[in-house]
Design a protein around this nucleic acid. Sequence first.
DNA 1: GAGCACTGC
Length: 701
Amino acid sequence: MSNHLPRKKARVSRLDDDETSMKSRLLNPLQKQREQLPIARGREALIREIQQNDTTILLGETGSGKTTRAFVSHHATAFAPHDSTLSTEVPQYILESGIAGKGMIAVTQPRRVAATSLAARVAAEKNVTVGGLVGYSVRFDEASSSETRIKYVSDGMLVRELLSDQLLSRYSVIIVDEAHERTLRTDFLIANLKTIQSARNSRRDVNGKGKSPASALNPLKLIIMSATLDAEKFSRFYNNARILYVKGRQHPVQIFHTSTSQTDYVDAALRTFFQIHTDKPPGDVLIFLPGQEDIESLEKSIKMYARRLPEERMSVLVCPMYAALPPTQQARIFSSTPSNTRKCILATNIAETSITIPGIKYVIDTGKCKEKRYLSKDTGGGFDTLLTRDITKSSAMQRAGRAGREGPGFCFRLYTEDAFNAMALSAEPEIRRCSLTQSVLQLKCLGQDFEAVDFMDPPEIGSVMSALKTLWLLGALDNSKTLTALGRQMASFPVEPYFARIILASKTHGCTSEVIDIVSILSSSSSLFLDISDQRDAIADARSKFRHASGDHMTMLNALRAYQEIAASESKGARKDWCRQHFVNERTFVEAMKIRDQLRQTCQRVGIDRHASMADNEEPVLRCFVTGLVQQSAFLQPDGTYKQTLGHSVIKIHPGSTLCDKKVPAIIYDELVYTSQIYARDVSSVPKSFFSNVTPVAKEA
DNA sequence: GAGCACTGC
């Protein structure tokens, strides 16, 4: 195996040492560092290419190859992701060259932390403060001004901007970074940017060279930045755009595969870890596992065997890492490793893209991950699945690269080289496996039909149909699939359409204050109630203080009210203690309160009184939830399971719910996920009588 | 009887 890059030589330019035209000038240390980067040598060529082409595909090459014979199995060439050099350098080159004219340069990112930290780094390199020449804009946080020329934005933020300015006319250059991740929002932008570019750039031709500038639109340049693998596809989509290939900066990583396939990857990881620990020089180990359950089990085994090691050996420090872990425990992975100790980090793919852990020299890759995927009705589903599956080649390369951030490293893959070769090139784009309800609604607001849009990968038609049906059931679309006034209002709320519908229903029922409190918790990225498997009894006990007989929604409201009382009277430390004692995630409360502010503002704009309250009467609140959760309801059957009211699946209440084992006649729930069974999560009990006439338009099964 | 990771005027 030598190179996965499926490139056609003719259209690919390599930016190499032949271009070295940096002028010497007074530099701050960061600027000096900039000039030594490999990409700096191709700067002039890069600028020329971008100048000459409307769209440029920029490929971050990934690592220098070093082939070594493995002692247990086959050998392989190292690959690794490009570091963030391209993301910080290219916007600066464009600004310095004047390509952007008077317009702004936008750089989109799939994650908000990336947008804010890249902006901070570029501002530091340019010796300016963030929010001036260089700024960012993400949800809840913005630093930009009239002087801002380079703006790092989350992809969702640019989608929001698109809804108010359909031509994105403030920007003369838009850089779509991390395009290979193919998030739903990135694909949404890639499709719309193609149309916008053709509208803006063709009018330039009509108006001609400098004539009638008042009516001319500023042309739009696009740069799509991606890690190797699917550059050709981006190029084809943008009318065979030029692909430029930029060499990366990465230490070599030796990759080992197993000679036979492993049946128990947790056990294989355990054995491989101790092999490294006994045979290899110091350096921390990162093990990629699919989820919390495997992480907890491996943590136990490693600790057990580590205790049996001879005294004189290096000791082992095990650090679990996954998104649901409380922040205090997450922080442990960044603390420096004590002397004579080897740190062993057990992580989900949170460590693949979202966080970079220092000091990693060895990576153990189980080759597995969990993936959420919507299983459509016509394939026997109608719910999300969350199942363990094989990773992709891109993912395997990304994981290996984590060993080569600071020096040469090693990656031990717990699968054969044949298994690697059989992996899919990259993950299926989100647009083909996620709910499209919100995107369909957003496009309706732009006057477009999802079916008619030229996407790089078109969604499954069944997926579009089910989104249309949901929007119709919620009253966002009428019988002729036309956007209703209600639908337009729903789109103005930065939450899932069914949550927006619940908020709008609260106007009728006079309980907006309570509904917004609950919806803001439900829309937070992390869950409110912690789940630590060996403390589940203590957790259930602590939670009983908030328990509301109707179920999880009102229980969350009670928890939020209790937290606010503590927050109003106690110190920050006491607040944290209280959260720890009650096994609630304070981060969720903090995020929920930011979301609540946004929802309150939106209510004000669309004329809903956000103060309207029914105090402790839960009935109107539950009626609002029934309105938005029409499709997410089920009735009890004689055998104790539940059957969907609009669907045929048999479901169970998740064991984490306050209603588990309660056998109430009818339930509503926020989501349905198939893991070992089909579980309903965040469940409330409602009278069956609530289900008649819940929506203004729809009444069919 | 138990949840991969992100995001949003």
